[in-house]
């Protein structure tokens, strides 16, 4: 809306229709509903160049957001070894991915950040065979300079330390709860975020004194944060499973074979040597 529309009453005051207010009420409801819908990722993010038409096989990989960098690398490798093929990605939170697939989003491969999300996908009949391909552990991140002088997990529970963690409903939060149980330290965070990226953002912006994120996230943030490792976190490892989706290949019978073959090739690449190298560079462990 512009200033001109706002001054709608200026030139013709008596004609300002009262029904405007009624319609504004409806608009407010739309706003309320829009608020509920926020956070649903928009269209698929195409990566790669082939247009999908012609003989080349084409797949969409649904993957946890933390896998973005190594998976883009592996996708490029697979496209090189399969000329004319096209590997696209949809990166989001693991629970979001499963929800999208359950609602009929077309995907060929699913890789989640935890086994619980994959189990939900399996119980919905979305995947058949899955295997763990990477692990991730938690670490503490602090703003550069470490203003609250954090040196251990127990320090996070001290009075006046503003700690941000993931909510227990999401994989990184569930892992944080396991570390709390292992260390016997009960945290009282100032915020429980839905996304590990939101935790990281609160640290890079200096809003909080410490955050609990994955090692891979801390590596990705680079110089913006400092890392304080948690020895106990090695016993609260998150396993990342991957599997070809039951509906892989798409509905078009003439493309299903090549597409399924490409999906299998991508999973093999992730679990094979080159994939392992890319995952290790990003900070992932071996299951």
């Amino acid at each position: 809306m512009t200033a001109g529309e706002a001054g709608v009453g200026r030139g013709r005051p008596s004609r300002r229709p009262r029904s405007w207010r009624r319609s504004a009420g409806l608009a407010a409801l739309v706003a309320v509903l829009a608020g509920c819908g926020a956070g649903v990722p928009s269209a698929q993010t195409p990566s790669g160049s082939a247009a999908g038409s012609g003989a080349g096989a084409s797949i969409t990989v649904f993957a946890a957001a933390s896998l973005a960098r190594p998976f883009e690398e592996i996708g490029a490798q697979v496209e090189r070894t399969h000329p004319g093929s096209d590997v696209r990605f949809q990166f989001a939170g693991s629970a979001d991915l499963v929800t999208q697939l359950r609602e009929g989003a077309p995907g060929d491969v699913l890789a989640t950040a935890d086994e619980a999300s994959m189990a939900r996908a399996a119980s919905a009949g979305l995947v058949e065979e899955t295997a763990p391909f990477a692990t991730n552990t938690l670490t503490i991140v602090v703003p550069t300079g470490n203003p609250a002088a954090i040196t251990s997990f127990a320090d996070l529970a001290h009075d006046g330390v503003a700690t941000v963690v993931c909510a227990p409903q999401v994989p990184c939060g569930a892992a944080t709860e396991r570390v709390e149980a292992l260390t016997g330290v009960r945290l009282s965070p100032v915020s429980e975020e839905n996304r590990v990226d939101d935790v990281l953002g609160k640290i890079t912006s200096g809003q909080a004194d410490a955050g609990v994120v994955y090692v891979t996230d801390a590596l990705r943030a680079g110089e913006a944060v400092a890392r304080v490792d948690v020895p106990e976190a090695d016993r609260a490892v998150n396993r990342y499973p991957i599997g070809v989706l039951a509906g892989a290949g798409g509905a078009d019978a003439s493309h299903r074979g090549p597409n399924r073959a490409l999906a299998t090739a991508f999973v093999d690449a992730v679990r094979g040597g080159p994939g392992r190298a890319a995952l290790t560079r990003a900070g992932f462990g071996t299951p």
Binding site: R21, G25, A28, G35, A38, G39, E192
Partner: peptide, 24 residues
Amino acid sequence: SGAVLAFARSLGEFGATLTFAGSL
């Protein structure tokens, strides 16, 4: 009328709250 709309908008507020206030 304006107060009702303001209340409704506040009730549906999401993005600014999540970014600025966190979630607890």
